[in-house]
């Protein structure tokens, strides 16, 4: 197992290198510089700024410098946000985004799995139809619509929760729900289909033939097997949460990475774009690694083909 994870980490570093190189060159191919929008700046001042940030040097030199700095853990200095180091900015902004993402993922998968299990166990009853209806709603309506509706009814009309702020857990409830709708719907649909298939398999009949009750069969035998394919969609779902959070963060005025990322793209803030991209890539790879490890935990067949056979 350790050998497998070590191997995966080496691949992650290689992938990160490729992603950061690609992002770097892509941005350099784009027209415009971080300072072109500042109309008050004179030609000389611009040159001084360019020199200060090393933007006057040939691109390969800039690239080499940047990569060396990344290796040292230095992502450069932001052009827009008060000349702060990008690592600091990311650190400050990471908290809310990760909290939201984690909460949404946690609630989303748990409620989604629950809904799916109920739908499968009570197939073709009103429970099943209700769960399907919710799932279709959740999948087809974008998260920002839910966000706006919740803001209006729960925040403005009922004044139960803060409309758009970021202090404490209460202010994270609505954004979390808005973000969790999609994972709930995805997990519920997937779980239902998988569980129905598993419940029809021979080993479930055998489990019944042993004298297990319907509940015991579902919980001891079926759900674990139905979870295996669900884990596969959890990866892309996590990505959807990360990108989806940009919009939701904007709506709820949450000082998260997503909001900062959008701003930095609008202002050509190269170091922030680079830093955020690399951070997202890193996060995604960690999630995928966790998912692959989860596979092994849930499915013994994968555990043993994964590496260390006895």
């Amino acid at each position: 197992m350790a050998k497998y994870i070590g191997k995966r980490i080496i691949f992650m570093i290689i992938t990160l290198f490729i992603i950061s190189s690609a992002t770097f060159f892509l941005m350099k191919f784009l027209p415009g510089t971080p300072f072109q929008n500042e109309e008050k700046l004179s030609e000389d001042q611009r040159e001084i700024l360019n020199e200060k940030y090393g933007l006057d040097q040939p691109i390969p030199v800039q690239y080499a410098n940047y990569m060396v700095n990344i290796a040292k853990g230095d992502l450069g200095v932001s052009f827009q946000f008060d000349n702060q180091p990008v690592t600091n900015l990311l650190k400050n902004r990471m908290g809310p985004s990760l909290q939201l993402g984690f909460q949404a993922m946690f609630i989303g998968t748990i409620i989604g799995i629950l809904l799916g299990v109920l739908a499968a166990m009570f197939q073709n009853t009103w429970i099943d139809y209700g769960s399907t209806f919710l799932a279709v709603l959740g999948k087809s309506i974008p998260s920002f619509v839910f966000a706006a509706v919740m803001q209006y009814y729960i925040g403005v009309k009922l004044e139960l929760l803060p409309v758009a702020s970021w202090d404490g857990f209460t202010s994270s409830i609505m954004p979390t729900i808005a973000l969790a709708i999609f994972p709930i719907a995805t997990a519920a649909r997937f779980m239902r289909t998988e569980l129905i298939e598993v419940l029809g398999s021979d080993y479930i009949t055998l489990a019944k033939a042993k004298g297990n009750s319907g509940m015991e069969v579902s919980f001891k035998h079926a759900i674990r097997n139905a979870l295996i394919p669900l884990i596969t969609v959890l990866g892309p779902m996590a990505v959807a949460l990360m990108t989806g959070s940009m919009v939701v963060e904007q709506i709820f005025a949450i000082p998260g990475i997503g909001e900062q990322f959008v701003k930095s793209i609008q202002t050509n803030d190269f170091p922030i774009i680079m830093g955020t991209t690399i951070f997202f890539a890193f996060l995604l790879m960690v999630i995928i690694l966790i998912i692959d490890i989860l596979y092994g935990i849930i499915d013994p067949r994968i555990r043993l083909t994964g590496g260390d056979k006895k």
Partner: peptide
């Protein structure tokens, strides 16, 4: 499973894989 039990046709699918 106690008084009456059953053996199924396909051993490849009648055991819980996990």
């Amino acid at each position: 499973g106690k008084d009456i039990s059953m053996i199924f046709q396909d051993p490849m699918t009648s055991l819980n894989p996990t």
